[in-house]
């Protein structure tokens, strides 16, 4: 039973998606499959994306539910879905979706690592193109920046 926030079984490489909605549904399905969320949360991911895009830059989007949908989260977890052919994301191209199910701040270390990866073009490219689950886990290993002092 995986208890890590991002576990190897939630890292899915080499996927394809017809379009953004298909990619979002796949994100929700993985979160449900790993026991992180209810199907209602997967629906909220679609709803949330309609308000403001979760595309972050460097080919990475971070889909997640709405504030109201938090009750449908069973445990804090992330899923990593890679689409090597890219998915049109309102005119941008997403190659990676990092789907978030979080009730509190358990995933912050990983998102901090992601912010660092995205500020470095070479690391961002590795995230988009890697065929190794271990490399993904390594790139996104939580930073231990407890506080800002």
């Amino acid at each position: 039973m995986a208890t890590e926030i991002l576990s190897a079984d939630a890292v899915r490489l080499g996927l394809t998606a017809r379009d953004k909605e298909d990619a979002l549904r796949q994100c929700g399905a993985v979160l449900v499959e790993i026991g992180a969320a209810d199907p209602a949360y997967a629906e909220a991911i679609l709803e949330r994306e309609r308000s403001v895009s979760t595309y972050m830059g460097e080919g990475v989007a971070i889909p997640h539910g709405t504030d109201e949908s938090r009750d449908h989260i069973k445990r804090g977890a992330l899923a990593f879905l890679q689409f090597p052919d890219g998915v049109d994301w309102n005119g941008k191209t997403a190659h990676v979706c990092i789907a978030i199910a979080s009730r509190s701040d358990e995933h912050i270390g990983i998102l901090q690592s992601l912010a660092m990866v995205l500020s470095d073009k070479e690391s961002a490219r590795r995230l988009r193109e890697t065929t190794s689950v271990d490399e993904v886990l390594e790139l996104l290993a939580p930073t231990d920046e407890e506080d800002d002092d």
């Binding site: 949330r48 308000s51 403001v52 979760t54 972050m56 971070i62 889909p63 997640h64 539910g65 709405t66 504030d67 949908s69 938090r70 978030i100 979080s102 995933h107 912050i108 998102l111 901090q112 992601l114 912010a115 500020s119």
Partner: peptide
């Protein structure tokens, strides 16, 4: 601030 406070705001806050 972001809608759910669990995604984009975390990324921006980190940088």
């Amino acid at each position: 601030a972001c809608d759910a406070g669990m995604g984009s705001s975390v990324m921006v806050a980190s940088t």
